[in-house]
Design a protein around this nucleic acid. Structure first.
Lengths: 156, 156
DNA sequence: ATTTATTAATTAACACGTTAACAATATGTT
DNA sequence: AACATATTGTTAACGTGTTAATTAATAAAT
């Protein structure tokens, strides 16, 4: 006999946690997952992950960059980046070599096979993004980007 | 001799991927990481992860719920939830039992030790959130939540 | 009632996120 | 030069995200 259980009493409202529905962390998570849900199947067809796409895209944008700079630009933590670099190099999408001037640094560069991925994925990615923008509203995307940036840099 | 490498030429702008800085997925990621960066150290002190916190918080809000409902409310995929439930049960923060009416379902309920975590963490969490809200602006948080919700539900 | 299809949860396999510890190289100090 | 310190990248260990396959139980269909 499993009677329906009422929510546990917690006492005064001040002790109650935030309603899950109106919490910033979950709202950001939901929004991000919704957006990535549009991109992921396409990236999967090209057999790359979202993070791998960010890395080769930044290499295409910026030329040769070292691992630290890549970690900053792609918002990927160093240990993750190490694995991603290894995978991309094994697949021949990027090349990697030590910096001659600073033996600690690892310089990354996109390889021809990586350029082909860029050429294949970019138009599809752009199309998905454009459709998203059109549905949400181009100006509102700009407003949202500004608000998100401000949130991300609150502590600076 | 490693000359600085210019960005790779990609041709017409239509083929260029989005600038990393103004892309919705990365902006959402950055904002989320910035926000969670405020909460994570506190949660770590209480030895729970963000996801574990979401689960016990929802159990405190909603009483007894099955795994599917939890997955929906906490935005956690079923395989992750299975692991999180196992961990929380082993630590005695929740209890788990099969639904008598539907043998497939697993019913979750918060345990006394879980209630103590809620009581300990909730005030700190609320304080962090309130400070965040105050710095960003309370009305702007509401606007942002609305915009994020709309983005998350674009395809409905 | 037996078969078929659907659903809930788990498991498996792989990739990434997170923190801490570590190795290798650079830099600074004496 | 020798030492201490700082920085770059890697490894380790654990937890989560993601997709696909699997198991167990229910529901639907003859």
């Amino acid at each position: 006999m499993s009677r329906a259980n009422p929510p546990v009493e917690l006492g005064p409202d001040a002790l109650l946690p935030h309603s899950t529905r109106r919490s910033l962390p979950i709202a950001l998570l939901r929004a991000r997952e919704a957006v990535m849900g549009h991109f992921r199947p396409m990236l999967a067809r090209h057999e790359i992950t979202e993070q791998q796409w960010r890395v080769i895209r930044i290499l295409a944008e910026s030329g040769k960059v070292d691992a630290s700079e890549m970690a900053d630009k792609a918002f990927i933590l160093a240990p993750s980046l190490t694995r991603i670099i290894r995978s991309l190099e094994e697949r021949g999408l990027i090349t990697k070599h030590k910096d001659a001037d600073d033996g600690r640094r690892v310089l990354l560069e996109i390889a021809p096979a990586g350029m082909r991925v860029i050429a294949d994925v970019s138009p599809e990615s752009r199309a998905i993004y454009d459709q998203l923008e059109a549905r949400y509203g181009r100006e509102r995307v700009e407003v949202l980007l500004d608000m998100l940036d401000e949130l991300a840099t609150l502590g600076d």
